[in-house]
Amino acid sequence: MLRIAIQTKGRLHEETMSLLSESGIKLEQSKRLLLIPSRNFPIEVLFLRDDDIPQSVADGVADIGIVGENEYAEKKKDVKVVKRLGFSKCRLSLAIPKEIDYKSTAWLNGKVIATSYPEILNDFLKSKDVKADIHVITGSVEIAPGIGLADAIFDIVSSGSTLVTNHLKEVEVVMQSEAIMIANKNITDEKQAILNELLFRMEAVQIAEGKKYVLMNVPTENLDEIIEILPGMKSPTIMPLAKEGWSSLHVVIAEKLFWDIIGKLKALGAESILVMPIEKMIL
């Protein structure tokens, strides 16, 4: 049985649970249980605070964990990164009151900086040869300058709206973060085999994200021109139709590119264009 540690709540929790579900992992939903086994896969989910996950994986309490890269960098535990997951993206940034004229990190010398990530901040300040007073607080870091607790903050930024609300501006982006999967370095061969199957399933789900399966009827004489403008993953599938001079073309393309090329396809005679979602894709 493979044990995976997952954040108890929040956006990362929701996106992780969605990925597990789409990967065919069925779990009993319960707000009271901290450890839930899967009904159809040799895995059990342990729900923890996000900042406890790196330690739990390092100690072998959990075999693997899904956590924000920021927490992994902050805790500096002896675990290995198995996979970057591409969701729950954010950044760790320094922010100061918007009315201040900021020109470089030299401004931070002698200042008080409030943060929940002292290790990452300390490493950054050392790299810039800056000496500042790091004030460690948890929660509502962004209000620290407004109440006179700090001159600047170092915190997670997603949209930036919280900074605007608190009359702050972002002046230094220290690191980019996303959800990552970490694993205990001494995982057994049996558990590694389960992990490999889980990674295979997750990969199939993620490859399919943002992709559409497109079918269309096209004039055979225009096939070369149509193929030239299709940003497909590989060579499209082409089958002759009963109607002479026409072919059926099947291709997988990124959804965000579809509307950019639909006009060109129609201009080359494509018709009966059918766009379908893709749930899984095995390469």
Results as ranks from 00 to 15, higher is better:
Lys264Gly: 05
Ala242Gly: 04
Lys243Tyr: 10
Thr237Ser: 10
Ser248Ile: 11
Glu225Gly: 08
Leu249Lys: 00
Asp260Cys: 03
Ser235Ala: 08
Lys243Ile: 04
Pro236Cys: 04
Val251Lys: 00
Gly232Gln: 14
Met239Asn: 13
Ile226Glu: 05
His250Tyr: 14
Trp259Lys: 00
Val252Asn: 06
Ser247Ala: 09
Ile227Glu: 15
Gly245Asp: 02
Ala242Leu: 03
Lys234Gln: 10
Ile229His: 13
Leu223Glu: 15
Leu257Trp: 07
Pro236Trp: 00
Glu244Asp: 00
Trp246Pro: 00
Ser247Val: 13
Lys243Val: 06
Phe258Glu: 08
Val251Asp: 04
Glu255His: 07
Ile261His: 08
Ile227Arg: 06
Ile238Thr: 15
Glu255Met: 06
Pro236Leu: 05
Met233Asp: 03
Gly232Trp: 12
Leu241Ala: 10
Glu228Asn: 11
Leu249Ala: 03
Ile226Ala: 13
Val251Gly: 02
Ile238Met: 01
Trp246Ala: 04
Gly232Asn: 13
Lys264Val: 12
Pro231Lys: 05
Glu228Leu: 08
Lys264Met: 13
Ser248Gln: 13
Phe258Gly: 07
Asp224Pro: 08
Leu223Arg: 09
Ile262Leu: 06
Asp224Gln: 14
Ile226Asn: 04
Ile238Ala: 01
Asp260Val: 06
Ser247Gly: 04
Met233Asn: 04
His250Val: 15
Glu228Arg: 08
Val251Leu: 00
Val251Asn: 01
Gly263Ile: 07
Trp246Cys: 01
Trp246Leu: 08
Leu230Asp: 09
Leu230Thr: 14
Met239Gln: 14
Ala242Lys: 02
Lys264Arg: 15
Ser248Val: 12
Met239Trp: 13
Val252His: 04
Ala254Ser: 05
Ala254Pro: 05
Leu241Gln: 14
Pro240Glu: 03
Glu255Leu: 07
Leu241Met: 13
Trp246His: 06
Lys243Cys: 04
Gly263Ala: 08
Met239Tyr: 14
Ile229Thr: 13
Ile262His: 10
Glu244Val: 11
Ala254Lys: 06
Leu257Val: 15
Ala254Asn: 05
Glu228Trp: 09
Leu230Cys: 05
Ile261Cys: 06
Met233Ile: 14
Leu257His: 05
Leu249His: 00
Asp224Met: 07
Phe258His: 05
Leu230Ser: 06
Leu230Ala: 07
Lys243Glu: 07
Pro231Met: 03
Ala254Ile: 00
Asp224Arg: 11
Leu249Gln: 06
Trp259Met: 02
Ile262Met: 08
Gly263His: 13
Glu228Ala: 09
Leu257Gly: 00
Val252Gly: 02
Pro231Cys: 02
Ile261Glu: 09
Thr237Asn: 10
Asp224His: 12
Glu255Pro: 05
Ala242Thr: 15
Leu241His: 11
